[in-house]
Amino acid sequence: MSARRTGVQVPGMRARRLLGVFRFLIAAIEVVALVGNFEYVLGFRLFATANFFSYFTVQSAFLAVVVLLVAGAFALFADHDPPWLGTVRTIVTVYVIVSGIVFGLIVSQASTFSYRIEVPWSDTLLHFVVPALVVVAWTVDSVLAVNPPVPWSTLGWVLAYPVAWLAFTLVRGADLGWYPYFFLDEAQVGGWVGVLVGCLVCLVIFLALTAVFVAVNRWLWRRARARRAAPPGAPRRRAARAGSPAPRP
């Protein structure tokens, strides 16, 4: 039976409702960023719509919008998220963060490969602002400990989409002669060995970030539940056992 039906307010539920609004706000910002970025690339003479939608950043941004809207609805109208949503939210959070990391690396290394990359406001939103906001929402959600903890099995799912995307992108790139990221183009990274190294580095980043997120979520969840379950006199009894006199009432 839900807390709404029983009239019992679950700890942190008001904050959870605010978190739901925050999730909707991030989704709205992501949509603005996507629209702005699409309008920006329309100004390029060789622009192709299919190429725009082939970027991992763009695809992960669409995933983030859908997941944020679903998660926002759960936060507003349910006492907790279903367990599967915690897994999906963590995975999508990792995706948008990796997109930002890769974009930052590309911008910093572009001149080495004779690239000139501009960073319009839409790219700033997509690659830096939204990932930061998503991490904030994810962290607050973990601190509230209203939702089930994220399972370690999340590590087994996070690579499914990136591996499929890499396979499709490499096949499509070989056919069209165009790649969304220069480290996937063998002509620019010294052959297929360079491409393989780039792909492996990306996959390791996905796994490492996911492991960190799951570990942090479970740690914050345990701490929040321990504080919530501790009796009011627990700190006083711990002080007495340590040899410190308990304060007088």
Rank of each mutant, 00 (worst) to 15 (best):
A208W: 13
G156A: 15
G86E: 01
G233Q: 08
V32M: 10
E118W: 05
V214Y: 12
A246T: 06
Y179V: 10
A28S: 11
F24P: 01
G43R: 12
L34D: 02
N217I: 03
A164Q: 09
N37A: 10
L184W: 04
F128I: 15
V163W: 15
S99A: 15
I205A: 14
P162Q: 09
L76F: 03
N51I: 01
F206I: 03
N147C: 05
G100E: 00
N217R: 05
G191I: 06
V214P: 01
V171D: 10
R172T: 14
G173C: 14
A15V: 13
W152F: 15
T210M: 11
L25G: 13
F24Y: 15
G104F: 01
F113R: 12
P11T: 04
L209I: 14
I205Y: 02
I29S: 07
R5E: 13
V201M: 08
F53C: 12
Y55S: 05
W84I: 02
P120M: 11
G36D: 06
H127R: 00
N147W: 03
G86A: 02
F74R: 04
R241F: 10
L125F: 09
A33I: 01
R5A: 12
A27F: 10
A226W: 10
Y181N: 14
P148L: 11
L207E: 03
L207I: 12
L159T: 04
F113M: 03
C202Y: 04
G100S: 00
R116D: 09
